[in-house]
Design a protein around this nucleic acid. Structure first.
Length: 575
RNA sequence: GCCCUGGUAGCUCAGCUGGAUAGAGCAACGGACUUCUAAUCCGUAGGUCACAGGUUCGAAUCCUGUCCAGGGCGCCA
């Protein structure tokens, strides 16, 4: 067993072994391990094996449980074992073992989390906005959820490549090229590049609807671009550069970093060959002038891989992208984070990828579309909320709160704090919901700073920091490592148990691609801490108890900070 | 028509790989700041887990059907 194995791992290994030695279970593969109880009064961990084995052993569950308890010697970290209800076997950890475990974790930089990703490579494809369009609140989920998954996987030891698969290729660039030459306002472009590019696009698009020659012109310019025309290429590159510059401002504010910014165009040269592969494998066939892959036997509608005008589309690009990524990086897994509308597309292209032997482990992580209470977002309705505006609003609301609660703080620090709190609140709101739920956007919810929110966690962290600093000011000569951690009070016990479960939360969040498992954990932890803080004295406790509690505080602070960091949420020592 | 999701407290949402009395925040009501940061804590109230069947020791959770809502289904990504 690994050095910082959790109680759940140790106990599960033990019950599994002990069950097999007490009963003749043959080759059965049911789960004999333990899980956390959902109520303290039942102990810390429960084993349900007695009920699961009823049929196989031909005995009543309580009898099985009793025979097990009578026969199996207790491991030393368990203080009590009892049978309850229909046949639950409940375990109570010993306080000494708990205290020793929390102390041991102080020396582990991963807080007890196993480095399961060591030697494995994962590509995470997220955010992926379109060039020449500004990011709106519909983009926040892919960015924030993708980034949390990115951070979780890195923490677990995976070699992560975060790739921003920009929408930088396609028919809209014909319109952009002619539109730019006709409509550009250089001043506006310098001041607010993407906004101006967007204006150009809309103007050009509207003109194309009324003017067929304009449409033809756009098409011709697109062909020139695709053939490598130097002038068009330079303009196109300018669009991309300006857009990425603008995107990066948002990413900086969100503390999101990518290893690669490879747009669709990067894979362009591979498309004809990909089509040939599909044809050679007998997968592609002609239909109404387009080239399609029939997926009926896989229970899906057909997938178009080449349009009737000879152009390629997203399925082909995505296949070529996978091929390229396998050749260059040989990843163990590729994770795509997009909204729910692309589920069918990903199912189709994953199936085709498998058929042509692109055997990477492909995962589509999708999330529910963000909508407004009245309707879904629509540019036509004019109800798009720009991401930058959302972040501005969050920071300014946070700044108001900071100014009223910490009026004496220097202004620079107030602003820095408001940024951490405002951005944190936005991210937390998004991350704390099940990704697959429908999400209704409300300002009230997005900027929530009370109760179950990032500021609650940040506040808890700041209070601990303050206590910790005051402790050192009052007792400058104390050496915490010489004072052992003791678990005596019930609330200390709850806190310690929660701290010991950090690794399970990280692992579950990563395995299920669900950062909300992490937010739930951290919120629970902060609640227990707040209760601890409010109900027992630290600095005024007697010597020994005081040191022990300060150590618990320190472990909590570390766990909160690390956990929030895995969600991309910053902490500050003072609030 | 077919496919994918969701429906849990007044509101916003957790819980869904089956476990014991279904949780939190907000809103409501009642308490706690001369005290380690009250962005907090303690308490009260609030539920036919959409509906109907089924599976089993046990179902909010799995299966089937119905209703409601959102999304997708040949040249947008």
């Amino acid at each position: 067993m690994r050095e910082f194995a959790t109680f759940e791992e140790r106990l599960s290994a033990w019950t599994t072994e002990a069950m097999k030695s007490v009963f003749d279970l043959g080759g059965c593969d049911v789960n004999l391990g333990v899980s956390p109880t959902n109520n303290d009064k039942f102990g810390d961990y429960q084993c349900n094996a007695a009920m699961v084995l009823t049929k196989q052993l031909g005995k009543a569950p309580r009898q099985i449980a009793q025979e097990f308890v009578d026969a199996a010697p207790l491991p030393d970290f368990v203080s009590k074992i009892d049978i309850a209800g229909p046949g639950f076997i409940n375990f109570h950890l010993s306080n000494d073992a708990l205290a020793a475990h929390i102390q041991a974790l102080e020396n582990d930089r991963y807080l007890g989390t196993e480095q399961v990703g060591e030697g494995k490579k994962v590509i995470i494809d997220y955010s992926s906005p379109n060039v020449a369009k500004s990011m709106h609140i519909g983009h926040i989920r892919s960015t924030v959820i993708g980034n949390a998954i990115d951070r979780l996987y890195r923490f677990l030891g995976y070699d992560v490549i975060a790739d921003n698969h920009l929408g930088d290729w396609g028919t809209q660039f014909g319109l952009m090229l002619v539109g730019y030459r006709e409509f550009v306002n250089e001043e506006a472009l310098a001041a607010s590049p993407v906004e101006e590019l967007e204006r150009i696009y809309v103007a050009s698009y509207n003109k194309s609807k009324e003017d067929p020659t304009w449409r033809d012109l756009a098409k011709a310019e697109l062909v020139k671009l695709q053939q490598g025309d130097a002038e068009n290429r330079a303009l196109w590159e300018k669009f991309i550069e300006l857009s990425i510059g603008e995107f990066n401002k948002i990413y900086d504010r969100l503390d999101v970093k990518f290893d690669l910014y490879r747009g669709e165009s990067f894979y362009n040269d591979r498309l004809p060959k990909m089509i040939r592969t599909l044809e050679e494998k007998g997968l592609a066939k002609e239909s109404d002038g387009a080239l399609i892959v029939d997926l009926e036997e896989d229970g899906m509608p057909i997938c178009i891989v080449r349009k009737s005008d000879g152009g390629f589309n997203y399925a082909t690009t995505d296949l070529a992208t996978v091929e390229s990524r396998i050749e260059e990086f040989d990843p163990d897994r590729i994770i795509y984070v997009t909204d729910e509308r692309q589920q069918l597309h990903f199912r189709q292209f994953f199936t085709i990828a498998e058929k042509i032997g692109l055997t990477a482990n492909l995962v589509h992580v999708w999330f529910g579309l963000m909508r407004l209470p009245e309707a879904t977002f629509s540019t036509r309705e004019g109800n798009v909320i720009k991401l930058a505006a959302l972040l501005d609003e969050a920071e300014s609301r946070a700044l108001e709160m900071v100014k009223s609660s910490s009026p004496d703080m220097p202004e620079e620090q107030q602003k820095d704090l408001a940024k951490a709190i405002g951005i944190g609140a936005i991210k937390y709101t998004d991350l704390s919901q099940n990704p697959q739920s429908l999400v209704t956007f409300t300002w009230e919810k997005a900027l929530n700073m009370e109760g179950n929110s990032a500021p609650y966690l940040q506040y808890a962290y700041a209070r601990i920091s303050s206590v910790y600093d005051k402790y050192h000011a009052q007792f400058p000569d104390s050496d915490l490592s010489k004072c052992s951690l003791k678990i005596e009070h019930e609330i200390e016990r709850r806190l310690a148990i929660k701290l010991s479960r950090f690794p399970a939360a990280v692992q579950a969040a990563a395995d299920n691609y669900r950062p909300n498992i992490m937010t739930d954990y951290l919120y629970d932890l902060a609640q227990i801490y707040s209760s601890f803080y409010q109900n027992v004295p630290f600095l005024k406790a007697e010597e020994g108890v005081r040191e022990s509690r300060i150590r618990l505080c320190r472990s909590t602070a570390r766990t909160l900070k690390q956990g929030l960091n895995l969600l991309g949420i910053e902490t500050r020592e003072r609030i």
